[in-house]
């Protein structure tokens, strides 16, 4: 199967990602290219809340940070996935597992890119910063749900082969969400706060998202 990727392949690839088709299996290279090319589209949209002056930089930064966020999360979670895959005796299925995860990720990328025009439209309609954050978050959540659905379609076949695949999936979901939230927190801002000069990362030192939430809940946040 060719690993060559061009824009003319896009509709085929979308269907091949969405459903496990016998006649068209997306390669890992294609899925990788898909994520690298499509996630920045949503990043551009997210960062374009305010493009006056040099604030257009937010859009560029967000476009760069989207694939970076996914790459960092993958890199941090993969060693554990590989070790667990080995211990559960599922190494022969490793490639299929990675393909299922990558398909889920590509589905998220497709969904986010398709939602980008809606987000820009909402921005142009004059939503305030709070609504911009909420809308971006909601679109992320929706795209993630789609990604889970697509991944599960493939994973279901693996589970039929060996029930232990459920454990592997559970690890991936928990680790990916746990690390992904923190990566997103460290790489913020994506939308860009009014009144703050554009910068790739916040000027303050890195902090822990979960500790911040705990402090907010207990009212101890300074």
């Amino acid at each position: 199967m060719s690993t060559h990727f061009s824009i003319s392949h896009a509709p085929n690839l979308l269907h091949a990602v969405a459903r496990p088709l016998a006649e068209r299996r997306p390669t890992l290279n294609e899925l990788f290219v898909c994520v690298v090319l499509l996630t920045p589209v949503f990043g551009l949209a997210m960062g374009s809340f305010d493009v006056t002056g040099d604030r257009w930089l937010y859009a560029v930064f967000a476009a760069v940070k989207m694939p970076l966020m996914i790459a960092v999360t993958w890199a941090v979670c993969l060693p554990g996935f590989f070790a667990l895959c080995s211990v559960l005796g599922l190494r022969d299925d490793l490639r299929e597992c990675l393909r299922a995860i990558a398909c889920g990720q590509a589905a998220v990328a497709f969904a986010l890119a398709s939602l980008a025009p809606l987000l820009v439209f909402a921005y142009l309609s004059g939503v305030n910063h709070r609504w911009a954050l909420l809308l971006s978050g909601a679109m992320f959540a929706l795209a993630t749900l789609i990604g889970q659905l697509v991944m599960w379609r493939r994973w279901r076949q693996l589970v039929r082969r060996a029930g232990r695949h459920r454990l592997l999936l559970a690890y991936w979901l928990v680790a990916y969400v746990f690390v992904g939230i923190q990566t997103g927190w460290m790489l913020r801002p994506f939308v860009g706060s009014p009144g703050i000069e554009p910068s790739f990362l916040r000027a303050e030192p890195f902090s822990n998202a979960y500790v911040v939430v705990a402090e907010l809940i207990t009212g101890t946040r300074r």
Binding site: P79, F82, T183, N208, V211
Partner: peptide, 23 residues
């Protein structure tokens, strides 16, 4: 220990951004 070591990158990643000892 192999599983623990494979989860080490997660630990290292959070260490870079966390000051909370309890966490």
């Amino acid at each position: 220990l192999a599983i623990a070591a494979s989860l080490g990158p997660i630990l290292g990643f959070f260490t870079l951004s966390t000051s909370s000892y309890g966490f």
